[in-house]
Design a protein around this nucleic acid. Structure first.
Lengths: 232, 232
DNA sequence: ATTTCCATGTAATTTGTTACATGATTTT
DNA sequence: AAAATCATGTAACAAATTACATGGAAAT
């Protein structure tokens, strides 16, 4: 390592020019690679796809677009509109495509702050009253079911019949014997692309959440019984 | 609704006094409820527990502590130290306990931005080269295995033997018959508290990730075969 | 008549991170 | 001799959110 561990407060001009976008900025650029889009288009698209695991606000999107254009990673054309302001449609350039490719290959998103609000709330649930916990579980179940359905839909659109999919479940019992009656259906996922894998990931996580909910409920029910059986 | 949908730019003095902490601030307060602690203590504690699903930096923690003290939700005592600066130990007050209780009961963390970097990177993986995808999968597997172990440890410390736990797995085949040989082991989780449930949640998610990895790998392997079988 | 959709964006603020600064003590 | 641990915190910045502002067209 060089002796200059402490960098000067003022960044070098070279560093400034090569200044990377924020993760949010690259997300916007990445979506622009699919097809040209306006800020509005992107906001809608994000809401329907990526927002489930990487929410971006409208204001944020609009803030990133000019930064992308500044770097010549997208070009903008104004399309006049009757009534509403001009649509500003951004088209990714070849340089933008390359910049994105470089970024996705390099970034270490593993150290990106991955926040899981559910887990946080659960962690502190002991400070809430028990009725509240029940409420929370109900909310989470509804969300998990919705996510499961949403992901199954996406897979369905990719020609993957979710009924043919192997299922992720808790063993009904740890004391069972599983008898194989037919050869494994190995081709159900044939040709799944990256976005399909993302949907499958979401599906599996949702199923895990549902399995967990089932477990937690049974724990709570038993605790109830205990309390009912041995009143103080 | 009142006609005053648009609030004045200057917040009212009442609103200012009742000004809530940020989520991060409440997390710090929540940890303070367990036992009095200095900023340093909290940073260590967080690193070993909550950071897995809600990372907070040292600087952030130190910034929140005075805000908590300002609201009289914790009192600070300086404990002189040889060499190092005084330890500033914060102790939650009754008011702090109540404030936290109110917060945890009220907040809707469901709309807190829940970011999942893995899913994001996967979503865009089509733009990376296939070798990179393999690398990613390996990294994720390592992390999932570590998380699984970590959560199992926590459960172990709570007297829950993970070998007695029902397992979360993909059906080996959708075409199997499961034969129940013994009554279900229902009491394995008896008396699990909120923190234990959090650990179980982490465990289940890690297992779901592993199941997903297995699936994705088999898809990739088949695609390989396909390509090998039909070279262009 | 009102709401929703389309479509842009800015301003102010909050929230969180990185890098820096200091310095004794203990471990490698 | 070097690094890590303990222990505080600040300054500068980056990232992201909320609220505001505008206004026509279409749907209810």
């Amino acid at each position: 390592m060089t002796p200059a561990t402490r960098r000067p407060a003022v960044p070098s001009s070279a560093a400034d020019a090569a200044r990377p976008l924020s993760t949010g900025g690259f997300v916007v650029l990445g979506l622009l690679l699919d097809e040209p889009a306006s800020g509005w288009d992107l906001a809608r698209k994000i809401d329907r796809s990526i927002a489930h695991f990487w929410p971006l606000t409208k204001a944020h999107i609009y803030a990133e677009l000019p930064k992308i254009a500044d770097r010549r990673w997208a070009s903008a054309q104004a399309i006049p509109q009757s009534g509403a302001p001009d649509r500003r449609v951004f088209t990714a350039t070849a340089a933008g495509r390359q910049a994105f490719r470089d970024w996705i290959a390099e970034v270490d998103l593993t150290d990106e702050r991955g926040r899981q609000p559910l887990q946080l709330q659960l962690f502190f649930a002991a400070h809430a009253d028990p009725a509240k916990l029940g409420e929370l579980l109900a909310t989470w179940e509804a969300r998990a079911l919705e996510t499961e359905r949403h992901c199954a839909d996406i897979l369905g659109k990719r020609g993957i019949d979710s009924t043919r999919l192997r299922r992720l479940t808790l063993d009904r019992s740890p004391n069972t014997t599983t008898v194989n009656t037919m050869p494994r259906d190995s081709g159900a996922l044939q040709g799944l692309d990256a976005r399909g894998m993302t949907a499958l990931f979401g599906l599996r996580r949702a199923q895990a959440d549902l399995a967990w909910l089932e477990e937690v409920r049974s724990v709570l029910a038993e605790t109830e019984l205990h309390r009912a059986g041995r009143p103080e």
